[in-house]
């Protein structure tokens, strides 16, 4: 289920990140990259012999200092999975990976909207879930309603 670490390192070196941080955690194999190389690394993973054909999931997390993006790749031929992570600053621009994985189209829009990021290279970088003017709701700085506010509706 876990791919070979040396092969991963080899692929990443070709994609321009030779000193990637690869860890085996409860999540699986987690590989932390610089945001600038994520798009090329994902393309390299898809084309590699590991055959990561599918982006299963894409999510963001507000760590309190920056936004952590997490890409979950799966290879159906080899039955292996890997998680790619990168950290970007608040309100920064992330480059879309839809050319490599079309399944990122909507999750990217959702993540960008709910964490207040902008998308570059996306064919349809509109808001997905909320209307204009709604703050990035999944950031830790966004607070939910209190019970009193609900009562005073």
């Amino acid at each position: 289920m876990l791919p070979d670490e040396t092969v991963i390192k080899h692929i990443l070196a070709d994609a321009g990140q030779s000193d990637a941080d690869i860890q085996e955690t409860a999540l699986g194999l987690v590989c932390t990259l610089a945001p600038s190389v994520v798009a090329s690394a994902l393309a390299a993973f898809k084309e590699s012999e590991l055959d990561f054909a599918t982006l299963v999931d894409l999510m963001g997390t507000d760590t309190g200092e920056e936004i952590e993006l997490s890409y979950h790749l799966r290879s159906f031929t080899r039955d292996e999975e890997i998680h790619i992570k990168c950290r970007v600053a608040y309100d920064s621009e992330i480059s879309s990976v839809w050319n490599t994985y079309p399944s990122a189209l909507m999750p990217e829009r959702e993540t960008a909207e709910l964490f207040g990021l902008t998308l570059s290279g996306h064919p349809n970088p509109k808001r997905l879930l909320t209307t204009d003017g709604v703050e990035p709701l999944l950031r830790k700085s966004s607070v939910i309603r209190t019970l009193q506010e609900v009562r005073d509706r």
């Binding site: 709701l137 609900v150 509706r153």
Partner: peptide, 18 residues
């Protein structure tokens, strides 16, 4: 009626009677 289990989320309208 009131927003139900999702009443705390700022995107939810607190009851359709609004």
């Amino acid at each position: 009626c009131t927003g139900g289990p999702f009443r705390e989320y700022p995107n939810v309208v607190l009851g359709v009677d609004q």
